[in-house]
Each structure stands twice: as structure tokens, then as C-alpha cells.
Design a protein around this nucleic acid. Structure first.
Length: 898
DNA sequence: GAATTCTGCAA
DNA sequence: TATTGCAGAATTC
């Protein structure tokens, strides 16, 4: 018969391990959770792996133990538990209670003693015991039936020890482990041992004499005189140390072993706690397990349980569905396409939810007459009387543009909704939403396609799987719409959501679809030109270094510069020497190789990131670049751009700026470039109502010159360019949430001087100071900050007891309302421009946004009108206490339009 | 192959 | 130890 198995966990040891092994995790409300998370992950892992019949977690009690009574310095000098960990103890116990796992705690005894007693008891009963701990002390308990699982590096690796393994690894028996400690002592518990005896000597002695007692009775046999003396002088201390290190195995415990029997956990309570601590992956795991258990007949059927799908494959069925939709007036849609090309993607499947119960699914390859189908879908999606809801509607728009279909009457997007509710999340998938709001576990793309080399092409996914996947999604979206809408209302985000973000999705879709023209020939010529430059520089650098190496590798470059050439290392990174521009510039005159490396860096950056990058991603059909504009990435409300990032095309240095010549308007068109002048400082003037700052903008002064004049106390005419550029840095600093350290770094001046600059700024701009203090205060009280349109960002960092984290929170509190309000403003402008151009049937198109700048591709004959419209929409976007100013220019290329 | 680090580009 | 992003190359796991 198989033995019963018990797992005994050293709670204190394990939670400590988990705490230090994991990066800090925090909930929205600012509770630290990393130790709980790590502990539970580890717990689940051992339970899964060893399937115990019994389980218990032992904790230390605060009360002093017999060891303290015997030796009052016991555990003295031990560092107090950091509060970030301390606050996690009680929550962990709550979770264990929800798991219905027995907690073993007895006053006057340490967890070790309870574990030892329990293990010996179980051994006698014929159980197999597994002790999980991060502490080697427990190894003294190892035997054939009592095994010790010790955490190795991190938390996921456990090493298993029985008596044999202990002997193998440490050359002593488990019980002799105690003797070792008697001699070596233990710093962390403040057990003295014999001074001067370390691990090596202790092992040697115990191997020879067998035990501490035998050793001190036979000291005359120790040949080394010094060692003998040490042992003889510390006899009592060795004995005492051994006793302190001995785990007690006969604690009087009034406990029934049956209490430790594994039980069904309290599901609802557990999910509630996991939700509170935002352990979404654990929620997933539990729900996933339940699904698997209930399954029996395969995953598909289970996943289908909540679905009621009607498949549409002919006209009559489609029209039947259409009737149903018209009755309901609202539909949720989600489609999937072959991954080919943005301008000719082919839709494979379309799922539609109508009301709570019904899902329809159209498999495009099942439908006989494709033209007929497209016609019907067009009629449906363009029907202005039917409201459309989706998750990531921009994607849906793009899926249907190639068919000449424009989805009309879009009323909700759950992805954007959740983004406004909390913009700090790392992902906004339907799966996440389902877990968070409904506790449901869905298929995701990974389940569908697999990962790595086994990843399937979308075309290769079995049809039924695709159908289930999409129908699940529309069902969930439908369920979530109301909840999210209410939340949006509650947070006073209605205007931002319905007037700005939702219409913006369509603007972004159109920008992506349109793309921007690039000059392929020019790029190819540049590629050759830059390759030659790089080859020459490489050769030159190798010559100067007198060896070949990978110049791109900071590690190898560091070795050449700082070891071989003996240049002074200015700065270090986590892994070695820093070789960044600042460092290299300080070394500029120290060696001829440095200027070459700087040039090499500049040239390779342009070639690899921009020239090669752009050529790789050019659309072969349109000859244009269709960047992806993401609406739910930034925490402040800005838009981000990827594949490629068109928001960081070089401009500061002429060499890089030349690249802008490859971005052009098509024949007989111009690029109009319109950018806000000082939008962030204008926002700051508006929010803070600072007299000086307001006046600066109302009078349309050069704001940096004005700032210089204030800080340095000279008339504006006497401001030198050096003063102006310092003032400019201060203005930047103000927007970012200033610190003297940061300003000093940026201006390359002393921290003291930077502090003076800041102080004189805040003195002159007193209301700015007041605003900064106020916003930090509000952030601390409420836990979030708001933009002009109530866009919200939570700041759990701001109450941290860690100075760095808290300071970060404070800077973010100051910066987000400014950066975020500027983002609100340009988004309004984008929606307005798009609308005006569309309604006026202009041929011009908005094609790019770069945070404070809009780019429109415009036919020559519309130039004047469109320029006026763009300028007007931008300047009138919001009514502030200062005017919004827009600089506008146009030309055949982006280079010329700036 | 995925994740992380360093570097550097923009507003 | 200044805000928000994205990407390429090297390196590590």
C-alpha cells in the first residue's frame, strides 16, 4: 500500500524567500503582494507535484521561546522585517484560511520545532513527510521518510533531500548537521559556535569525532595546537550552540492529525481575495482547473457551454439574422482575417452577438457566393440605425476597409473603455476583462495557435476552434458593455469617452490605412552610402584599437576602452562599464578612437533603425508605410506608434534630419505640418493660473527667454543664449516634475546650483509651486490624478515608504495632468480635423500625429482651405486661459514642411 | 526562442 | 535621481 504523504511548510522561511526573490508587486491601492504571490505560487506547485493527503503551514509566534530563555542573545541583532513584507503576513494567512490549509502556531515554539515534532510523529505513523523551507537547518530532520525540500535560487527550484542526499552533499549525517552548527555557529540566529571554526574545519572535526560531545572529551587527539585551544576554551559555548540549533521534536501539541487533512478550498472566498490582490494568473489557474475537471468530453464542448451559435452560410439565414439585429438595434462584432497586408486582408470569420443569448457566426469560406456575402455585410455594417459594439473597433474598421466597407454608428469599445478606467494596465485583452469582471476563463490567441515554432498560421486554425473563440469574445463583450459604461459614467469620463476616444479610433484606423509615402530609391541609395561610411569607420576603429571586436557590444567596447587602452571609466552600469554618449564625450580628447566611435554610433543608429528599419517594413503594394497607432498603451493618454515608430524620426542633428526627405506627399500633393507651440507650458499656465506664465503667453513672448529673465533677474533684452538654454532646461524640468538631481544631470551643473535655479523659478512662479504642491497632496489623498478632461491615472507609488518610489510617484503626479491634458487637446483636434475633412469631401487626409504635431497629406488645390481648417481645429480645440498657438508649414516632404 | 540590458531616437 | 514612448543588437536564461 502506498504511504500517506504530508507536506509541512515553514511559513516564515518561505514568505521571506518569496519576498526577496520577486520584484515588488503592488495592487492599485498600494498593497504589496509579491511575497503572498510567490508563496502561493510555490504552494500550488508543491501540491500539484506531490499530491499530498495532509498539509500544514507552520509559523513562528512572537512570544519568546525556550531558546531565548536559555541564551538571551538568541536571534539578537536580527534585522526587523521590512514593512513591505510585514504587511503581507496577515493577508497570507487569510489566503491560507480560504484554502482551508491548517496553520500550526504555538506560543513559545518556533516553526522549526513544530515542524520537527510533526515530522517525527508522522514518521512514526508511517507517513512520508515533505518539509518545504528555505532554511538548511531543517536538514537535521532528514531521513528515509522525511524529506526536506529547500528552495534554490529564486522560488521555482526546489532541491529534495533525504538522509542519503544529505550525506552525499555535506559528508555528514542529518543529525551531525546539528553538531556542525554547534561548532560553526549561525550568524543569522546569533548562535556563537566556536570562534574561528568555519564550515571546512567543522566538517573535518565532525567526520573525525562524530559529535560535539565526543570532540570535547577527546580534545587531546586534535593535533593542531591552536585549534585544540580554541575548542577547549569554548566547550560550553559549543554545547550551548548545539542545543540552540537542535530542533525540538517533542513539543506538546494538542492537535489532531486529521485537522491537517487536505480539504476542498473555499472557492468564493479565495477568488475574492485573489481579486483583491490582483492575482489574475492565479484566478485563471483556478478557473482553468475547474473547467478541465468539468470537462470529461473535451475542451471544445465545455467552451461552447455558454454559447448558442447560429452559423450563417446563405442569404436566407443572413436575412433572418438581420431581422433579429434590427429588432435589437445593437450588435457586437469581432472578426478575424488572414495576416497578409493591411490593404488587402481577407476576412475569414465574423462573429456577431445580438442580445445576451444569441451568437451568429459567418465562416467566409463556407458561404458560397462571396460577392453576395460582402454586399450583405456591407449593408449590415454601414446601416446607420444599428449600433456597433466591439473590443478594439479600430481593428474591425481595418478588417473591412479593404472591402470598401465603413462600419457606421460605433457606440462602444470595451478595450478603450477599460483603458480609460485604468490606463496603467499592461494589456487590455478580452480574456483579461473576462477574468477580472466575470471570473470567466476564455481561450486566447495562444490557446488557438500555440507558441514558438508550433505557432499556427491563422488559416491553419481549425474552423470550429475559430468559431468558438470569436463567439466567446462577442458574448463577453456584450456582457461587459453595460458594466464598463456605468464605470465610465461614475468616473465622469463620458465626454472623454464618447466625444473623443471613441471617435478617435476611427481617425487612427484611417491614418493607418492611408499610411505615408516613402521614397524607396532614396532609402536604397542611403543604405549604400551609409554602409560605406560604416565600413570605413569600422576599419579605422579596429586600426586605432589594434584589434577587431564588436563595436556594437558595450561589453567588448568597454574592455577595449577601459582595459586595453586604459581610459578612465567614468560611469558603470549594472553589468559593467558604461559606454554611452555622455561617457564618450567626456573622453573625447583622450584618444583618437573616441570621436570615431561616436560617429560610428550615430551612423549605425540611423542605418539600422531608420534606413533598414523603414525598408523592411514598407508596404509592397502601396509603397507606403502604415504605422500602427495604439490608443491604449500610454499611462498619460498619449498615442504610441509602432512598426515602425514614426514618432521618433530624427530631427535634432542634420545628418538624421535628412531622413525626413524620404517621407513625402504623393504627386500634386503637399505635406502640411502643424504643431502646437509650447502646449505643455500653456496647459501648465492654465491649470496653475500663474500670473507670470499667463502673461508670457498672452503677450506671446518667447517663454524660455521670459523664464530666463525671471530666474536671472535681468531684462528680457539682456538674456543671453546661455541663460535662455538653462531656462529652457528648467522649464522642461518643471513639466517632468522637477528634482535638483535631474536638472543638475541635464545641465551638467552641480546639484547645489540646480537647486538654486529651481528655487528662484518657484519664487517667481509662485502659483506653479502652489499647483505642484497641491497636486501631490491630492494624489496622496485620493490615490490618483486627473487631466482637464478627467482622464485618470492611479499612483500607488506615491504612498510608498521607499524614497525613490515615492519620489517617482510625486513627479508623475505633477507631470501626468500636464502631459495628459496636452494629449486630450490634440486628440480633440484630431477628431475635429478628421470630421471637417470628411464632411467637406476634401481629398486631404490626416496621416500622422507626433504628440503635439499633426501631418496632413493635401492636394495642391486644397492647400489654403485645408491649412486654415487644420489651424483652426487645433487652436480651437479647447478654450484655455491662454491662447493655443499653432505653427503651420507645408512642403513636398516632411523635411521641407518643418 | 524569449526575456533582459544597453543604447539612443522623438515629444 | 527628470515625463512618456519604441527599437535594434547583444547577451542571458
Amino acid at each position: 500500500m502506498k504511504k500517506d504523504r504530508i507536506i509541512i511548510i515553514d511559513g516564515n522561511s518561505l514568505i521571506n524567500r518569496a519576498f526577496y526573490a520577486l520584484p515588488p508587486l503592488m495592487t492599485k491601492e498600494g498593497h504589496h503582494t509579491n511575497a503572498i504571490y510567490g508563496f502561493i505560487t510555490m504552494l500550488f506547485k508543491v501540491i500539484e507535484e506531490y499530491q499530498p493527503q495532509y498539509i500544514g503551514v507552520a509559523f513562528d509566534k512572537k512570544a519568546p521561546t525556550f531558546r531565548h530563555k536559555e541564551f538571551k542573545e538568541y536571534k539578537a541583532g536580527r534585522k526587523k522585517m521590512p514593512p513591505e513584507l510585514g504587511e503581507q503576513m496577515e493577508p497570507l494567512k487569510e489566503v491560507l484560511d480560504a484554502l482551508r490549509i491548517y496553520r500550526i502556531e504555538i506560543e513559545g515554539f518556533e516553526a522549526d520545532d513544530l515542524i520537527g515534532t510533526l515530522a517525527k510523529y508522522c514518521e512514526a505513523k508511517g507517513f512520508e513527510s515533505l518539509i518545504v523551507t528555505g532554511d538548511k537547518d531543517a536538514l537535521q530532520l532528514a531521513s528515509q521518510d522525511t524529506k526536506i525540500l529547500i528552495t534554490k535560487k529564486g522560488i521555482s527550484n526546489l532541491e529534495i533531500y533525504d538522509d542519503k542526499k544529505v550525506l552525499e552533499d555535506f559528508e555528514v549525517t542529518p543529525l551531525q548537521f546539528i553538531d556542525l552548527k554547534g561548532l560553526m555557529g549561525d550568524k543569522s540566529d546569533n548562535i556563537p559556535g566556536v570562534p574561528g571554526v568555519g564550515e571546512k574545519t567543522a566538517v573535518k572535526l565532525i567526520k573525525e569525532f562524530g559529535s560535539v560531545e565526543n570532540l570535547i572529551q577527546n580534545t587531546q587527539q586534535i593535533s593542531a595546537a591552536k585549534l585544540r585551544e580554541k575548542i577547549e576554551d569554548n566547550r560550553e559555548q559549543a554545547i550551548l550552540s548545539k542545543r540552540l540549533a537542535t530542533i525540538v521534536t517533542n513539543v506538546p501539541v494538542a492537535m489532531e492529525i486529521e485537522e491537517l487533512k487536505v480539504e476542498e478550498f473555499d472557492r468564493d472566498r479565495l477568488l475574492e481575495l485573489f481579486k483583491k490582490y490582483e492575482f489574475n494568473s492565479l484566478i485563471n489557474k483556478i478557473i482553468g482547473n475547474e473547467k478541465r475537471e468539468n470537462q470529461g468530453e473535451g475542451k471544445e464542448q465545455e467552451q461552447n457551454a455558454n454559447l448558442c451559435i447560429v452559423t450563417i452560410s446563405h442569404k436566407e439565414a443572413f436575412e433572418e439574422m438581420m431581422k433579429e439585429i434590427k429588432k435589437e438595434k445593437t450588435m457586437v462584432l469581432k472578426s478575424i482575417t488572414e495576416e497578409k497586408n493591411i490593404v488587402k486582408n481577407k476576412v475569414i470569420g465574423l462573429a456577431i452577438a445580438v442580445g445576451e443569448k444569441n451568437q451568429y457566426y459567418i465562416d467566409f469560406s463556407d458561404y458560397k457566393d462571396e460577392n453576395e456575402l460582402i454586399g450583405l455585410v456591407k449593408k449590415l455594417l454601414e446601416d446607420d440605425t444599428i449600433e456597433k459594439v466591439s473590443h478594439d473597433i479600430k481593428k474591425e474598421l481595418l478588417h473591412f476597409y479593404p472591402y470598401g466597407i465603413e462600419i457606421k454608428n460605433i457606440v462602444f469599445d470595451t478595450m478603450i473603455g477599460e483603458y480609460l478606467i485604468d490606463p496603467s494596465k499592461s494589456s487590455y485583452s478580452i480574456k483579461e476583462l473576462a477574468v477580472q469582471y466575470l471570473g470567466e476563463n476564455l481561450l486566447d490567441e495562444e490557446d488557438l495557435r500555440g507558441t514558438g515554432k508550433n505557432k499556427l498560421e491563422i488559416e491553419a486554425i481549425p474552423r470550429e476552434k475559430l468559431q468558438t473563440y470569436l463567439c466567446q469574445q462577442v458574448r463577453i463583450i456584450n456582457k461587459l458593455t453595460k458594466t464598463l459604461d456605468e464605470k465610465i459614467k461614475e468616473l465622469q469620463l463620458l465626454e472623454l469617452y464618447y466625444e473623443i476616444e471613441l471617435p478617435l479610433a476611427e481617425v487612427l484606423a484611417s491614418m493607418e490605412f492611408k499610411g505615408i509615402q516613402v521614397d524607396k530609391h532614396m532609402l536604397e541609395d542611403l543604405k549604400i552610402e551609409f554602409k560605406e561610411k560604416i565600413d570605413n569607420l569600422t576599419e579605422e576603429i579596429y586600426r586605432l584599437a589594434e584589434s577587431t571586436f564588436n563595436i556594437n557590444s558595450p561589453k567588448q567596447l568597454g574592455e577595449i576602452l577601459f582595459d586595453k587602452l586604459q581610459l578612465p571609466p567614468i560611469k558603470k552600469t549594472k553589468t559593467g562599464y558604461s559606454t554611452n554618449v555622455e561617457v564618450l564625450e567626456k573622453l573625447y580628447d583622450k584618444h583618437d578612437i573616441i570621436p570615431k566611435i561616436l560617429e560610428y554610433r550615430q551612423v549605425t543608429k540611423i542605418k539600422t533603425t531608420y534606413i533598414d528599419g523603414l525598408l523592411n517594413i514598407m508596404n509592397p503594394i502601396t509603397g507606403r508605410i502604415h504605422s500602427n497607432f495604439n490608443q491604449t498603451v500610454t499611462t498619460t493618454g498619449r498615442i504610441s506608434s509602432t512598426e515602425p515608430n514614426l514618432q521618433n524620426i530624427p530631427i535634432k542633428l542634420e545628418l538624421g534630419r535628412q531622413l525626413r526627405k524620404v517621407f513625402g506627399a504623393q504627386q500634386d500633393y503637399q505635406l502640411i505640418d502643424a504643431d502646437y507651440s509650447q502646449i505643455e507650458l500653456r496647459v501648465l499656465a492654465h491649470i496653475s493660473e500663474d500670473k507670470n506664465l499667463l502673461e508670457s503667453f498672452v503677450k506671446d513672448q518667447d517663454v524660455h527667454t521670459r523664464t530666463a529673465s525671471e530666474i536671472f533677474q535681468v531684462p528680457m533684452e539682456e538674456v543671453t543664449s546661455a541663460m535662455r538654454s538653462s531656462a529652457k532646461a528648467v522649464n522642461f524640468g518643471i513639466v517632468y516634475g522637477i528634482s535638483d538631481f535631474g536638472l543638475a544631470e541635464n545641465l551638467n551643473i552641480s546639484r547645489y546650483k540646480a537647486k538654486q535655479y529651481i528655487e528662484s523659478y518657484l519664487e517667481k512662479y509662485a502659483s506653479v509651486q502652489k499647483y505642484m504642491e497641491e497636486t501631490v497632496k491630492i494624489a496622496k489623498e485620493k490615490g490618483y490624478v486627473l487631466t482637464l478632461l478627467n482622464r485618470r491615472r492611479y499612483l500607488p507609488e506615491i504612498t510608498s515608504r521607499n524614497f525613490n518610489i515615492r519620489s517617482f510617484g510625486e513627479r508623475v503626479a505633477m507631470n501626468t495632468p500636464i502631459q495628459g491634458s496636452a494629449a486630450d487637446i490634440i486628440k480633440i483636434a484630431m477628431v475635429k480635423v478628421y470630421k471637417r475633412l470628411k464632411e467637406g469631401n476634401f481629398q486631404a487626409n490626416l496621416i500622422l500625429q507626433v504628440h503635439d504635431e499633426l501631418i496632413v497629406e493635401c492636394p495642391n488645390y486644397e492647400l489654403e482651405t485645408v491649412s486654415t481648417i487644420v489651424k483652426e481645429c487645433m487652436e480651437q480645440a479647447m478654450d484655455l486661459k491662454v491662447p493655443l498657438k499653432v505653427d503651420l508649414a507645408y512642403g513636398p516632404t516632411w523635411y521641407d514642411a518643418k
